[in-house]
Protein backbone atom coordinates (compact mmCIF):
# COMPACT_ATOMS: atom_id res chain seq x y z
CA UNK A 1 0.00 0.00 0.00
CA UNK A 2 2.76 2.39 0.96
CA UNK A 3 4.81 1.76 -2.13
CA UNK A 4 2.32 3.37 -4.42
CA UNK A 5 1.72 6.27 -2.15
CA UNK A 6 5.35 7.25 -1.65
CA UNK A 7 6.57 9.20 -4.55
CA UNK A 8 9.99 8.43 -5.87
CA UNK A 9 12.12 10.83 -3.88
CA UNK A 10 13.53 13.94 -5.46
CA UNK A 11 16.98 12.39 -5.74
CA UNK A 12 16.27 10.89 -9.12
CA UNK A 13 16.16 14.38 -10.44
CA UNK A 14 17.49 13.50 -13.86
CA UNK A 15 14.34 11.62 -14.73
CA UNK A 16 12.05 14.16 -13.24
CA UNK A 17 11.93 17.04 -15.65
CA UNK A 18 8.91 19.28 -16.16
CA UNK A 19 8.16 16.98 -19.08
CA UNK A 20 8.19 13.70 -17.17
CA UNK A 21 7.06 14.98 -13.78
CA UNK A 22 3.31 14.82 -14.45
CA UNK A 23 3.58 11.11 -15.12
CA UNK A 24 5.16 10.60 -11.74
CA UNK A 25 2.43 12.67 -10.14
CA UNK A 26 -0.41 10.78 -11.72
CA UNK A 27 1.24 7.37 -11.49
CA UNK A 28 -0.13 6.34 -8.07
CA UNK A 29 -3.65 7.41 -8.94
CA UNK A 30 -3.57 5.84 -12.38
CA UNK A 31 -2.10 2.55 -11.20
CA UNK A 32 -4.64 2.18 -8.43
CA UNK A 33 -7.36 3.21 -10.81
CA UNK A 34 -6.43 0.64 -13.43
CA UNK A 35 -6.26 -2.22 -10.95
CA UNK A 36 -9.22 -1.40 -8.74
CA UNK A 37 -11.59 0.37 -11.07
CA UNK A 38 -10.87 -0.32 -14.73
CA UNK A 39 -10.34 -4.02 -14.18
CA UNK A 40 -13.59 -4.65 -12.25
CA UNK A 41 -15.50 -2.39 -14.60
CA UNK A 42 -14.30 -4.27 -17.64
CA UNK A 43 -15.00 -7.64 -16.11
CA UNK A 44 -18.51 -6.65 -15.14
CA UNK A 45 -19.00 -5.24 -18.61
CA UNK A 46 -18.09 -8.67 -19.94
CA UNK A 47 -20.58 -10.17 -17.48
CA UNK A 48 -23.31 -8.13 -19.09
CA UNK A 49 -22.77 -10.00 -22.36
CA UNK A 50 -23.01 -13.37 -20.70
CA UNK A 51 -25.70 -15.48 -19.17
CA UNK A 52 -25.51 -18.05 -16.44
CA UNK A 53 -27.76 -20.91 -15.50
CA UNK A 54 -27.08 -23.13 -12.52
CA UNK A 55 -23.57 -21.78 -12.27
CA UNK A 56 -22.64 -22.40 -15.92
CA UNK A 57 -21.74 -19.25 -17.82
CA UNK A 58 -22.12 -18.79 -21.54
CA UNK A 59 -21.88 -15.96 -24.05
CA UNK A 60 -25.20 -14.29 -24.71
CA UNK A 61 -24.39 -11.36 -26.95
CA UNK A 62 -26.85 -8.55 -26.47
CA UNK A 63 -29.56 -10.73 -24.93
CA UNK A 64 -29.40 -9.00 -21.55
CA UNK A 65 -29.71 -5.59 -23.17
CA UNK A 66 -32.53 -6.75 -25.39
CA UNK A 67 -34.35 -8.09 -22.35
CA UNK A 68 -33.75 -4.81 -20.56
CA UNK A 69 -35.35 -2.73 -23.25
CA UNK A 70 -38.45 -4.93 -23.13
CA UNK A 71 -38.64 -4.95 -19.32
CA UNK A 72 -41.51 -2.84 -18.03
CA UNK A 73 -40.08 -2.84 -14.50
CA UNK A 74 -36.91 -1.27 -15.84
CA UNK A 75 -38.98 1.47 -17.44
CA UNK A 76 -40.88 1.87 -14.21
CA UNK A 77 -37.58 2.24 -12.36
CA UNK A 78 -36.39 4.73 -14.94
CA UNK A 79 -39.60 6.70 -14.60
CA UNK A 80 -39.43 6.72 -10.79
CA UNK A 81 -35.81 7.75 -10.77
CA UNK A 82 -36.39 10.61 -13.16
CA UNK A 83 -39.50 11.76 -11.32
CA UNK A 84 -37.52 12.00 -8.12
CA UNK A 85 -34.64 13.68 -9.95
CA UNK A 86 -36.78 16.32 -11.59
CA UNK A 87 -38.62 17.20 -8.40
CA UNK A 88 -35.93 16.73 -5.78
CA UNK A 89 -32.80 18.30 -7.23
CA UNK A 90 -34.36 21.71 -7.99
CA UNK A 91 -36.08 21.84 -4.59
CA UNK A 92 -32.93 20.90 -2.77
CA UNK A 93 -30.69 23.29 -4.66
CA UNK A 94 -33.15 26.14 -4.23
CA UNK A 95 -33.26 25.61 -0.48
CA UNK A 96 -29.49 25.23 -0.44
CA UNK A 97 -28.97 28.52 -2.30
CA UNK A 98 -31.39 30.37 -0.02
CA UNK A 99 -29.73 28.93 3.08
CA UNK A 100 -26.31 29.75 1.73
CA UNK A 101 -27.30 33.37 1.06
CA UNK A 102 -28.74 33.65 4.56
CA UNK A 103 -25.63 32.08 6.03
CA UNK A 104 -23.49 34.55 4.12
CA UNK A 105 -25.25 37.50 5.71
CA UNK A 106 -22.97 39.90 7.50
CA UNK A 107 -25.55 40.08 10.27
CA UNK A 108 -25.05 36.47 11.24
CA UNK A 109 -23.09 35.41 14.29
CA UNK A 110 -22.25 31.84 15.26
CA UNK A 111 -21.83 30.90 11.64
CA UNK A 112 -19.83 27.77 12.52
CA UNK A 113 -22.63 26.47 14.65
CA UNK A 114 -25.15 26.82 11.85
CA UNK A 115 -22.79 25.33 9.33
CA UNK A 116 -22.28 22.22 11.42
CA UNK A 117 -25.96 21.93 12.21
CA UNK A 118 -26.83 21.95 8.52
CA UNK A 119 -23.98 19.72 7.51
CA UNK A 120 -24.67 17.03 10.10
CA UNK A 121 -27.28 15.08 8.12
CA UNK A 122 -24.75 14.37 5.39
CA UNK A 123 -22.45 12.62 7.81
CA UNK A 124 -24.91 10.30 9.53
CA UNK A 125 -24.28 6.60 9.41
CA UNK A 126 -26.74 4.83 7.19
CA UNK A 127 -27.95 2.47 9.89
CA UNK A 128 -28.92 5.35 12.15
CA UNK A 129 -30.56 7.24 9.36
CA UNK A 130 -32.54 4.14 8.38
CA UNK A 131 -33.98 3.38 11.78
CA UNK A 132 -34.68 6.97 12.72
CA UNK A 133 -36.56 7.72 9.51
CA UNK A 134 -38.43 4.43 9.44
CA UNK A 135 -39.84 5.02 12.88
CA UNK A 136 -40.42 8.74 12.45
CA UNK A 137 -42.35 8.23 9.22
CA UNK A 138 -44.42 5.33 10.50
CA UNK A 139 -48.07 5.83 9.64
CA UNK A 140 -49.46 4.82 13.02
CA UNK A 141 -47.00 6.04 15.62
CA UNK A 142 -44.41 7.99 13.72
CA UNK A 143 -43.42 11.33 15.14
CA UNK A 144 -44.21 13.07 11.84
CA UNK A 145 -47.86 12.07 11.82
CA UNK A 146 -48.04 12.82 15.52
CA UNK A 147 -46.75 16.34 14.90
CA UNK A 148 -49.11 16.78 11.96
CA UNK A 149 -52.03 15.78 14.16
CA UNK A 150 -51.39 18.91 16.24
CA UNK A 151 -52.41 20.99 13.27
CA UNK A 152 -55.30 18.71 12.48
CA UNK A 153 -53.83 16.76 9.58
CA UNK A 154 -54.98 13.16 9.20
CA UNK A 155 -52.27 10.47 9.40
CA UNK A 156 -50.45 10.01 6.11
CA UNK A 157 -49.21 6.62 4.90
CA UNK A 158 -45.75 8.01 4.29
CA UNK A 159 -44.09 4.82 3.19
CA UNK A 160 -47.08 2.85 2.01
CA UNK A 161 -48.80 5.00 -0.53
CA UNK A 162 -47.44 5.20 -4.08
CA UNK A 163 -47.47 8.99 -4.03
CA UNK A 164 -46.41 9.63 -0.43
CA UNK A 165 -43.65 7.06 -0.64
CA UNK A 166 -42.00 9.13 -3.38
CA UNK A 167 -42.58 12.24 -1.28
CA UNK A 168 -40.95 10.54 1.70
CA UNK A 169 -37.89 9.66 -0.34
CA UNK A 170 -37.66 13.22 -1.59
CA UNK A 171 -37.95 14.55 1.96
CA UNK A 172 -35.34 12.12 3.23
CA UNK A 173 -32.85 12.87 0.47
CA UNK A 174 -33.44 16.58 0.82
CA UNK A 175 -32.90 16.36 4.56
CA UNK A 176 -29.69 14.46 4.06
CA UNK A 177 -28.04 16.46 1.30
CA UNK A 178 -29.28 20.06 1.45
CA UNK A 179 -26.76 21.13 4.07
CA UNK A 180 -23.95 19.49 2.16
CA UNK A 181 -24.81 21.46 -0.98
CA UNK A 182 -25.37 24.57 1.06
CA UNK A 183 -21.84 24.35 2.42
CA UNK A 184 -20.44 24.02 -1.07
CA UNK A 185 -22.53 26.93 -2.34
CA UNK A 186 -21.60 29.03 0.68
CA UNK A 187 -17.98 28.55 -0.23
CA UNK A 188 -18.82 29.87 -3.67
CA UNK A 189 -20.66 32.87 -2.26
CA UNK A 190 -17.74 33.83 -0.09
CA UNK A 191 -15.58 34.03 -3.15
CA UNK A 192 -17.77 36.60 -4.87
CA UNK A 193 -16.08 39.94 -4.66
CA UNK A 194 -17.79 42.46 -2.37
CA UNK A 195 -16.95 45.20 -4.89
CA UNK A 196 -19.63 43.90 -7.20
CA UNK A 197 -22.28 44.34 -4.53
CA UNK A 198 -21.04 47.76 -3.52
CA UNK A 199 -21.13 48.93 -7.12
CA UNK A 200 -24.65 47.60 -7.47
CA UNK A 201 -25.74 49.32 -4.25
CA UNK A 202 -24.46 52.60 -5.53
CA UNK A 203 -26.49 52.02 -8.69
CA UNK A 204 -29.50 51.61 -6.39
CA UNK A 205 -30.07 47.89 -6.94
CA UNK A 206 -32.05 46.25 -4.13
CA UNK A 207 -31.09 43.01 -2.40
CA UNK A 208 -33.36 40.93 -4.55
CA UNK A 209 -32.07 42.41 -7.76
CA UNK A 210 -28.51 41.96 -6.55
CA UNK A 211 -29.27 38.33 -5.94
CA UNK A 212 -30.44 37.79 -9.50
CA UNK A 213 -27.96 40.06 -11.26
CA UNK A 214 -24.82 39.27 -9.24
CA UNK A 215 -25.13 36.31 -6.92
CA UNK A 216 -26.71 33.81 -9.26
CA UNK A 217 -24.50 34.47 -12.28
CA UNK A 218 -21.38 34.43 -10.11
CA UNK A 219 -22.52 31.24 -8.46
CA UNK A 220 -23.24 29.54 -11.75
CA UNK A 221 -20.13 27.33 -11.97
CA UNK A 222 -20.68 26.05 -8.46
CA UNK A 223 -24.38 25.59 -9.03
CA UNK A 224 -23.52 23.58 -12.10
CA UNK A 225 -21.11 21.55 -10.05
CA UNK A 226 -23.67 20.79 -7.33
CA UNK A 227 -26.34 20.13 -9.96
CA UNK A 228 -24.18 17.59 -11.76
CA UNK A 229 -23.19 15.90 -8.50
CA UNK A 230 -26.77 15.79 -7.26
CA UNK A 231 -27.95 14.43 -10.57
CA UNK A 232 -25.41 11.64 -10.48
CA UNK A 233 -26.31 10.95 -6.87
CA UNK A 234 -30.03 10.80 -7.57
CA UNK A 235 -29.64 8.66 -10.66
CA UNK A 236 -27.71 6.21 -8.52
CA UNK A 237 -30.24 6.53 -5.71
CA UNK A 238 -30.17 3.37 -3.65
CA UNK A 239 -29.92 3.81 0.12
CA UNK A 240 -33.24 5.54 0.74
CA UNK A 241 -35.53 3.32 -1.35
CA UNK A 242 -33.64 0.25 -0.12
CA UNK A 243 -34.07 1.13 3.52
CA UNK A 244 -37.28 3.09 3.69
CA UNK A 245 -39.60 1.63 1.10
CA UNK A 246 -37.83 -1.37 -0.40
CA UNK A 247 -38.98 0.02 -3.74
CA UNK A 248 -42.63 -0.24 -2.83
CA UNK A 249 -45.51 0.01 -2.67
CA UNK A 250 -45.98 -1.87 -5.88
CA UNK A 251 -42.67 -0.63 -7.29
CA UNK A 252 -43.60 3.02 -7.04
CA UNK A 253 -40.20 3.81 -5.52
CA UNK A 254 -38.16 1.23 -7.37
CA UNK A 255 -35.04 3.03 -8.63
CA UNK A 256 -32.58 1.86 -11.23
CA UNK A 257 -29.87 1.11 -8.68
CA UNK A 258 -32.30 -0.77 -6.47
CA UNK A 259 -33.49 -2.80 -9.44
CA UNK A 260 -29.87 -3.55 -10.23
CA UNK A 261 -29.27 -4.70 -6.66
CA UNK A 262 -32.39 -6.87 -6.61
CA UNK A 263 -31.40 -8.62 -9.79
CA UNK A 264 -27.84 -9.20 -8.69
CA UNK A 265 -28.11 -9.82 -4.98
CA UNK A 266 -31.63 -11.20 -4.59
CA UNK A 267 -32.24 -13.04 -7.84
CA UNK A 268 -28.56 -13.84 -8.47
CA UNK A 269 -28.74 -12.63 -12.03
CA UNK A 270 -25.45 -10.77 -12.10
CA UNK A 271 -25.39 -10.66 -15.85
CA UNK A 272 -28.64 -8.80 -16.09
CA UNK A 273 -27.61 -6.57 -13.19
CA UNK A 274 -24.45 -5.61 -15.07
CA UNK A 275 -26.45 -4.73 -18.15
CA UNK A 276 -28.63 -2.45 -16.05
CA UNK A 277 -25.52 -0.81 -14.63
CA UNK A 278 -24.07 0.04 -18.01
CA UNK A 279 -27.29 1.45 -19.34
CA UNK A 280 -27.37 3.60 -16.21
CA UNK A 281 -23.79 4.76 -16.81
CA UNK A 282 -24.69 5.82 -20.34
CA UNK A 283 -27.72 7.74 -19.08
CA UNK A 284 -25.68 9.51 -16.42
CA UNK A 285 -22.92 10.39 -18.87
CA UNK A 286 -25.41 11.80 -21.37
CA UNK A 287 -27.24 13.79 -18.75
CA UNK A 288 -24.10 15.26 -17.21
CA UNK A 289 -22.94 16.23 -20.68
CA UNK A 290 -26.25 17.93 -21.45
CA UNK A 291 -26.23 19.77 -18.12
CA UNK A 292 -22.77 21.09 -18.79
CA UNK A 293 -23.75 22.22 -22.25
CA UNK A 294 -27.05 23.79 -21.24
CA UNK A 295 -25.86 25.51 -18.09
CA UNK A 296 -22.63 26.37 -19.82
CA UNK A 297 -19.33 25.21 -18.49
CA UNK A 298 -17.68 28.55 -17.85
CA UNK A 299 -15.24 26.72 -15.77
CA UNK A 300 -13.64 24.60 -18.43
CA UNK A 301 -10.91 26.05 -20.56
Amino acid sequence: MNDTAKKPAGKKRKFVTPKTAPYFFIAPAVLLFIVFTIYPVVSSLILSFQTSTAGVTSFAGLDNYRRLFADDLFYQALFNTFTILIVQVPIMLTIAVVLAVLMNSALLKMRSFFRIAFFMPAITALVAYAIVFMIMLDENYGFVNYALSWIGIEPIAWLNHPFWAKVSLIIAITWRWTGYNMVILLAGLQNISQDLYEAASIDGAGKVRQFFSITLPQLKPILLFTAVLSTIGTLQLFDEPFILTNGGPNNSTLTISLYLYLNGFRYFDFNYASAIAYVLVVIIALLSFIQMKVLGDDDDK
Binding site: M134, I135, D138, N140, Y141, L159
Partner: peptide
Protein backbone atom coordinates in the same frame (compact mmCIF):
# COMPACT_ATOMS: atom_id res chain seq x y z
CA UNK B 1 -55.62 -4.19 8.78
CA UNK B 2 -53.04 -1.90 10.35
CA UNK B 3 -50.68 -0.99 7.56
CA UNK B 4 -47.31 -1.20 9.29
CA UNK B 5 -43.97 -0.04 7.97
CA UNK B 6 -41.39 -2.75 8.07
CA UNK B 7 -40.41 -4.87 11.00
CA UNK B 8 -40.22 -1.97 13.42
CA UNK B 9 -43.75 -0.97 12.55
CA UNK B 10 -45.08 -4.45 13.09
CA UNK B 11 -43.41 -4.75 16.46
CA UNK B 12 -44.69 -1.34 17.47
CA UNK B 13 -48.23 -2.20 16.43
CA UNK B 14 -47.99 -5.33 18.54
CA UNK B 15 -46.81 -3.78 21.75
CA UNK B 16 -48.96 -0.64 21.47
CA UNK B 17 -52.34 -2.34 21.31
CA UNK B 18 -52.78 -1.09 17.77
Amino acid sequence: VANTDGWDGTVTATVNNT
